[in-house]
Amino acid sequence: MARKDLLDIASLHREEIEFLLDQSTSFKQLFTQSVKKVPALEGKSVLMLFYEPSTRTHTSFEVAAKRLSAEVTNFDIAQSSITKGESVRETVETLQAMRTDYIVVRHGRSGLPGMIARLTKASVINAGDGAHAHPTQALLDAFTIKEKYPDPVGKKVLIIGDILHSRVARSTSTLLKKLGMEVAYLGPGTLVPKQGPENIRLFTNYDAAMAWAPDFVYLLRVQMERQDVQFFPSLREYHRLYGITNDRLTEIRQRGLYIMHPGPVNRGVELCDAVMDYERSLINNQVENGIAIRMAVLDWLRPGGESSSEMSAHPSQLAGQQSILA
């Protein structure tokens, strides 16, 4: 049941998700041992192709790959120049010639990792594409939630923030729903899709959302750099309306809710300082679990170069077809 690529969550089967979460548990157990490395990917090369700046995800993948004994190469992209699809094709053709086994790609354009996957025999892992998908983030979120509730069916997650532009919101909510959880979105009317996916509650009012009685409050990072188009009048106003203020934290503590955030956080915007010391904040757990998840993903995928030619061409297309149906 191995795949060539991991491009999104929608195309993953339930068994594949369970398998990855189980594998991550095993990998995580390594972290407390003195030797954290396993030889699973010895002699394999992992190429990091990041067209968008990212410290956390980039580092997390790099650590994961190294703990599997893979060689890691960073393909540095000048941030201003290459972004369009045609240049990416040329880059991928170059990489194909370098015979890399895995390509971890982040790009601002939705769907671009899928295009790369069709062009190369290497396994492509989507580390975030535009507002489309961020599958490893979703998996680490699910893993983090399952650590608290091994049977998460029926648990409720409220995702707060810029839902419209968030690949994290899309992938994480898709995965949590596949695991039988309930998801709601909260954010300003400009950043919550009017026609979102089915079976996700939409809120634009904090109190109404809290009355829905979530078990987890999942805060999204407010994208400061996106403020060329004004989606809300000021950060101060955002914090007052949708941020976790001190007063709101008090209520959250009373209710015993968990707080999550994909990082990096903007203090004073989506959350106040005190949240960082909140005993039920899972933000650091998410970071640690991210490495285990990415190890499991790298270990699971099978680059097309060493399997039948069918493998190299089909899984990505298949993935796409399934995502339509999902």
């Binding site: 939705s110 769907g111 535009g130 489309h132 899309r170 026609q195």
Partner: peptide, 12 residues
């Protein structure tokens, strides 16, 4: 088109 599909694809 803006709608369910644009949201799913993550494109404005």
């Amino acid at each position: 088109n803006e709608g369910v599909m644009s949201y799913r694809l993550g494109i404005k």
